[in-house]
Design a protein around this nucleic acid. Structure first.
Lengths: 320, 320
DNA sequence: CTGAAAGCGCTAACAA
DNA sequence: TTGTTAGCGCTTTCAG
């Protein structure tokens, strides 16, 4: 059905190795033969079979990208950026979704192992130990997790949290609710670290929570009860949930309570009031992860990307 | 580095073909040897190299899934459903994003061609003719497009539009604005077909529009001016844009104007008022596409899936 | 510059 | 039930 290297060789009366060279080391073949081969290849619609090639070269020119949940709006921008960057390097990226299931994640990594040159692990759910073990089979770059000796791209959540807190403080807020995410989440930990160092502010913690709208909805009452005039949420979905809960109680945002999210996902931009949030450097992260994978001789280079505060409509001056 | 079939064979003193059989046709090998082989394989962390296997069998147990834009919330549910269904059939799905670029789409298909057993094409941007040509290299199932002789899963947009129109009519609306999408879009055409047949309603068309929030925002003024008491939008994003534009003009939804979207994406569910919308059978579509690909002897079975109206808060009785 | 031969990891007849 | 042999599509020495 599809033309192979043999067909091309036969079609223009040369040996297969000449055809092979025409594609993998063109400078080693006579310009005349080269164009003859190219013509025949074009005619037959021949394209080298990358998988077969990989069998001998060991390089597939593919990379895998594994995310916990494609439906989470946080990931697509990372994926797109990674794909674009990979494409510019003549690589392709295959994306797979683990459905938040560590076992699926492991299975997927093992499947990828032989068909890609490396995999980008975004916010993995597997244990560090497991990841280290699997790293023997295929090179990794981890996004949003720090694993000793493994290349990683991190987003500077701590700095973002600080930005948000400063913004709120500048608006006159003193008592601020910190609505965290799932237990053990790296992002949550980072946020709490910053909070611990915040001085002059009266921080009250709520968590762990589901990292979803319902998670936010569920704590809204407690948040309101604690008397905070502002809340910093684990992510935009949670922030949106909090806002929804608050307005169900007739508490206006930002008039009575200010809310800041994290991530800068689409629903936050469409919400009314438009969500003030800490934007994650998703595009840079995707791009960086690809670069790291491609350049890494396996060293554990760690890149930390800064975040940015986007002030929209969900924050305002504290009532005096 | 990674163990091969040879290593396993050597480790337990059998021939490679015995190891091979242990994995691809276990019933053909003596239970004793089998467990010996399995033990050795486990010990060495051996896993068959699917790519190499494919070279001889012609089956990769992988399938490709190509979408125009992963960041469009419409696609992720389809992707997830396809992945889940594929997994249950011992298949893996590799997703790729074309960035709405037909050339990238073609490139991706060609890359996939040799490494997968088939590809799921979701809302392709390539011409029918091109798709037919590429179909010689790899089996396709097309989602949301009808191409003669090619297996397809279609969503019954016409029926959904009818549901929406009936709902609106039942609420007493007579003059309804139809805000369509991009020119030449299959969905838009379907909607217009239904509209043409609607009797007793006064339909006024607006389009073409960008299938985004800003597209909706841009027509909101015209919609308001035409005096319609309800609008049926191309998709949820457009509907959200219309709502935003309307409220900027102090026109309340649903008090003064009712709005219905299409797709049932997350931002619509989070919006206030929560969007009434026609839900697309995304999960069923993803599942179906996989089934079609796996069972198709290449016949052009076409499956049409029904849509469902989800009434939420953006529609209400017409003012009398 | 080009051909011949070996081999990547695996499976598939065919014998034994 | 197991080993032998050949070969999938391609690259890579090594000669010529």
């Amino acid at each position: 059905m599809a033309a192979t290297i043999k067909d091309v060789a036969r079609a223009c009366g040369v040996h297969v190795s000449t055809v092979s060279r025409t594609f993998s080391a063109p400078h080693l073949v006579n310009p005349g033969t080269r164009s003859k081969v190219l013509a025949a290849a074009d005619e037959l619609g021949y394209r080298p079979n990358r998988a077969a090639r990989a069998l001998t070269t060991g390089r597939t020119f593919n990379m895998g990208l594994i995310v916990a949940d494609i439906a989470n709006p946080f990931f697509p921008p990372i994926i797109k950026a990674a794909q674009a960057q990979a494409r510019s390097r003549d690589y392709h990226v295959f994306v797979a979704d683990t459905d938040e299931d560590p076992r699926v994640e492991e299975e997927l990594i093992r499947t990828f192992a032989k068909q890609v040159d490396g995999v980008l692990l975004c916010s993995p759910r597997l244990s560090n130990r497991m990841i280290e073990r699997l790293a023997e089979d295929v090179p990794f770059v981890v996004v949003n997790r720090r694993i000793k000796g493994m290349p990683a791209v991190l987003m500077n959540v701590a700095q973002g949290a600080k930005l948000a807190l400063d913004h709120l403080a500048g608006l006159g807020h003193r008592r601020i609710a910190l609505v965290s995410g799932p237990i053990g989440s790296w992002t949550s930990n980072e946020m709490q670290g910053v909070a611990a160092e915040a001085t002059g502010l009266d921080l009250v913690f709520f968590g762990p929570n589901q990292p979803t709208e319902s998670g936010g909805l569920a704590v809204a009452a407690d948040v309101a009860a604690c008397g905070a005039s502002a809340v910093l949420a684990y992510n935009d979905l949670v922030a949106l949930g909090v806002i929804e809960g608050l307005s169900a109680m007739e508490i206006g945002v930002p008039d009575q309570v200010s809310v800041v999210g994290f991530d800068d996902i689409l629903p936050g931009r469409l919400n009314r009031p438009k969500l003030t949030t800490v934007a994650m450097p998703a595009v840079a992260a995707g791009r960086m992860a690809v670069d790291l994978l491609l350049q890494s001789g396996g060293e554990g280079a760690t890149v930390t990307l800064d975040t940015a505060l986007i002030v929209r409509e969900s924050t305002g001056r504290a009532q005096s």
